[in-house]
Design a binder for these strands. Structure first.
Length: 552
RNA sequence: UGGGGUGUCGCCAAGUGGUAAGGCACCGGGUUUUGAUCCCGGCAUUCGCAGGUUCGAAUCCUGCCACCCCAGCCA
């Protein structure tokens, strides 16, 4: 089940364990900011953090990093929990919020002030930026850098008391304005923000910054390995500085790994939020999005995402994973147990001229390799639909489908031969006429006929209308740089076809339309995309097509 | 021109001095009432480049090159 994984993080953990360095065992945390929905990049982190804890008998905190009330909300807190659960992970009792620690954080900040390691700076944001220096030039000390401890304590208390407006003052660490690492040039620790917080309400009007908050929360929770992405690498000295300069007896190591890059996708929450807000997609759960909500609505099983994250591995290398790997994982997850059904997405009418009388009911397995899944009933009759692409009046070489004079097997039913093509006045193929061979019934075929191909069909009397939505990539290039220019405005294809009525008895919301792909019943409703709520017609989202190795 | 990272097959990725795992993709072949699945086989004399150390280097040393990240009172 769980292969022995040997990425650099797990190797490190094994070493720590061997050396007896972990008194409390393995403790990890997944620290999302509740300002958007989770995407498959977060899934990589979730699988890593929860996976590692599971493998080494440790525990994982779900800790919301809610230090910026101007962007965060309860709605996102809920959706994130739902998504993590759906992915298959459980934090149990270990649900925390950075805001749970606001009181302690405040005390730690005061300690820093008393020790002369932090000061209240009253420069404007603009002035501060100007004095920060550049990548190659050192910054200049703030004129407020040498305020007395007493003044600093007083000012900080009054900041908290609400005496000042947003931006009037800020609490800064007193480190080194000449540091080549810009994060160490007296970084801001607290800012004034008169904003109601979704958990603490109006109790605070100053909020701690990430760099000050995160490391302390990690220490307070006894995180044994604080795993984050590469862009925090040069924040690590600050992470360590804070913990080294306050009175705390635990110091987690921060270990960075590279974020997931996925072809034809964008993994930036900012960009995703923008697509949602501008109505370019149908909400956070648009099936074209790499969000967990979107993947779920598309029909991607959580197990496929977990498998994908495992196959992708964990390293420090920048990467852009091929979308084909995800597609492979999805097909593989669905192959073994997804019920089969036949659906004709672009119907071509077929008349079986030698079929007389009552419709015939046939049996077909829900899954050809899983007989224990049982059978479904299928109807064969005089009027049928086949896929337009399964007929050609000018077949290419090695065409194994139907063409004038040729024979083909209708899956789980009879062999037919095309006798005639009926055309419209303008010459388009309107329907075809065929004869069937009564002694060629699937299962007891005594005809001796050997057609070269098998195609799917739906009997007109057994057909239920179905609307099918297929999705292309949201972006036109594998590695979109300009999300507006590279946006694919034409990524949804909607067709109306027929599905065998047995679909109603399908033992799963996931289904394979034979020879076409895996589909998932869409039951959410919204404006942009069609949903199941419209009329009584069925709506399916194509999760992924079947592999197709046919090359004419 | 500062600091921090990363460079192993088309894409991921093992490997940490002993002579290049694996997966995906791709290409052959077999089975097949899904051109699916499944099965078999092929696919890096070479590890960014150049030197050096060593009996032996993807792994050690030196120098180069390329790419990514950092100048929010965001996380």
């Amino acid at each position: 089940m769980t292969a022995d994984l040997h990425d650099f993080i797990r190797n490190r953990i094994r070493r720590d364990l061997d050396e007896g360095a972990l008194e409390q065992g393995v403790v990890t945390r997944f620290p999302p900011e509740p300002n958007g929905h989770l995407h498959i990049g977060h899934a990589k982190s979730i699988c890593l953090n929860f996976g590692v804890a599971r493998e080494f008998g440790g525990k994982t905190y779900l800790r919301f990093d809610d230090t910026n009330p101007s962007k965060e909300s309860e709605e996102f807190v809920r959706s994130i929990q739902d998504d993590i659960n759906w992915l298959g992970f459980d934090w149990g009792e270990n649900l925390t919020f950075a805001s749970d620690y606001f009181d302690q954080l405040f005390e730690f900040a005061k300690q820093l002030i008393v020790d002369g390691k932090a000061f209240v700076c009253s420069q404007s944001a603009d002035e501060m930026r100007q004095n920060r220096g550049t990548l190659t030039e050192p910054g200049r000390d703030s004129p407020f850098r040498n305020r007395t401890v007493a003044d600093n304590v007083d000012l900080f208390e009054r900041m908290r008391a609400g005496e000042f407006g947003d931006g009037a003052h800020v609490l800064r660490a007193r480190i080194d304005m000449a540091s080549p690492n810009i994060n160490l040039r007296d970084p801001v620790l607290y800012r004034i923000m008169h904003k109601r917080h979704h958990r603490t309400g109006d109790r605070w009007c100053i909020y701690p910054m990430y760099d000050f908050t995160h490391c302390i929360c990690d220490a307070l929770e006894g995180i044994s390995h604080s795993l984050c992405t590469l862009e925090f690498e040069d924040h690590r000295p600050l992470y360590d500085w804070v913990l080294d300069n306050i009175n705390i007896n635990f110091h987690p190591p921060q270990i960075e790994f590279s974020r997931l890059g996925l072809e034809y996708n964008v993994m930036s929450k900012r960009v995703l939020a923008e697509l949602v807000d501008k109505g370019k997609v149908d909400g956070w759960s648009d099936p074209r999005l790499p969000t967990l909500a979107g993947l779920r609505r598309r029909g991607v099983p959580a197990s496929a995402i977990r498998d994908f994250c495992q196959r992708v591995g964990v390293t420090k290398q920048d990467n852009l994973v091929e979308i084909k790997l995800l597609e492979f994982c999805i097909r593989q997850a669905l192959e073994a147990h997804t019920p089969r059904v036949m659906a004709v997405l672009e119907p071509l009418r077929v008349t079986v001229t030698n079929f007389e009388g009552e419709d015939e009911v046939l049996d077909a397995p829900w899954h050809p390799q899983q007989p224990e899944m049982g059978i479904r009933k299928l109807v064969f009759g005089r009027e049928l639909f086949i896929e337009r692409s399964d007929f050609s009046d000018d077949p290419p070489d090695k065409f194994k489908r139907l063409s004038p004079g040729a024979m083909v097997r209708l899956r789980y039913a009879y062999i037919i031969r095309c006798d005639e093509v009926v055309r419209t006045a303008s010459g388009e193929i309107e329907s075809i006429q065929v004869t069937y061979f009564p002694d060629s019934r699937s299962g007891d075929d005594t005809s001796g006929l050997k057609p070269k191909g098998v195609i799917h069909f739906v009997a007109a009397s057994n057909a239920r209308r179905v609307r099918v939505q297929s999705f292309g990539y949201l972006f036109r290039t594998p590695n979109p740089k300009d999300v507006h220019q590279d946006f694919n405005d034409n990524s949804v294809t909607s067709t109306e076809g027929f599905v065998e009525s047995g679909i109603a008895q399908a033992p799963d919301a996931h289904v394979q339309f034979e020879r076409t792909g895996y589909f998932y019943r869409d039951s959410s409703s919204s404006e942009g995309l069609e949903s199941d709520a419209i009329g009584d017609s069925l709506i399916f989202n194509r999760t992924v097509s079947l592999r197709d190795s046919w090359k004419p």
